[in-house]
């Protein structure tokens, strides 16, 4: 029970001179049967890990692109239970760690008793819960205690220094550094203070720091990847997959490769 599988995957990637690239997908966008194909494609294309989004009725941290993908998935009748079961069915073929991103209520409804064991059985080694700040994380952390599943915390640009320290101290898997004040979605520019923010975060953290929110072009991947240990790309991947533009996905992933690590 190490909770380190995601951490190790990122560090290994960094050691090879690459930045970690974690694509976000909306599970069930296009139907549950596409999940396997999408995950195996991303694995083959060079993803370090995959963030599997669970659709929710009230996704307050998400912008239009992911909201719409979620609505498409909800229309297909996709639920956390169905996704767990589906992931378990092709678990042997997935060699990179999966991370589930879900709002808290579906997890509570799923049941805290069974979440850890079911995650492990499905190859899921991390949970990202955007409406679960550090102060409220105790219960879920307890549920994941004796498992390999890391509870991944987010840090925002608005988090003050002492808060960043506290989150970094409790961090498992990696730290998800939110790079904008806002919700998920494509943006053209980032704030000027971001570089210093990510540097401080990396200094405070014993686990890797991945930058996410608003990263949508190969340039973003290179720039923000260069400031962190890797990137998470959501809306741009969701859009490309929805449109069947697999080349765009490859271009984004390739932008994370062969970057000199600055650690």
């Amino acid at each position: 029970m190490t909770k380190k599988l995601v951490t190790q995957a990122i560090m290994q990637c960094n050691e090879q001179g690459n930045k970690a690239f974690v694509p976000y997908i909306m599970a069930g966008d296009g139907g549950l049967q596409t999940l396997k194909k999408t995950i195996l494609f991303l694995q083959e294309a060079g993803a370090t890990a995959i963030e599997v989004g669970i659709p929710f009725s009230d996704p307050v941290a998400d912008g239009d692109v992911i909201q719409q993908a979620g609505e498409r998935a909800l229309a297909e009748g996709i639920t956390l239970r169905k996704i767990m079961k589906e992931l378990a069915s092709f678990r042997e073929e997935v060699k990179i760690p999966l991370v589930i991103m879900t709002y808290l209520n579906p997890v509570l409804s799923y049941g805290l008793q069974s979440i850890a064991a079911d995650c492990e059985a499905s190859g899921v080694y991390g949970l990202i819960v955007p409406d679960l700040p550090l102060e409220e994380s105790g219960l879920l952390k307890e549920a994941l205690k004796n498992s390999d599943v890391a509870l991944i915390q987010l840090v925002s640009l608005t988090s003050p220094a002492e808060r960043i320290e506290a989150i970094a101290k409790a961090a498992e898997g990696f730290i998800y550094a939110v790079t904008v004040n806002g919700i998920t979605g494509v943006r053209s520019s980032f704030t000027e203070g971001l570089e210093g923010h990510l540097e401080r975060l990396k200094a405070a953290s014993s686990v890797p720091v991945l930058a996410g929110f608003g990263i949508s072009t190969p340039e973003h991947v290179r720039t923000l990847g260069g400031l962190a240990d890797g990137v998470i790309v959501g809306s741009a991947i969701v859009t490309a997959l929805h449109e069947g533009d697999y080349e765009k996905v490859r271009t984004l992933i390739n932008a994370s490769k062969n970057q000199l690590t600055n650690s």
Binding site: A61, L104, D131, P133, E136, G138, S156, T158, S159
Partner: peptide, 25 residues
């Protein structure tokens, strides 16, 4: 459901929000 945070009414209440809002709260 129990936690140690402020703003609880019995087991109800809490602060289940994105990290970006925590400082504002």
């Amino acid at each position: 459901m129990t936690t140690e945070t402020k703003g609880r009414y019995g087991k109800f209440g809490g602060q289940f929000v994105p990290e970006t809002l925590m400082t504002a709260l």
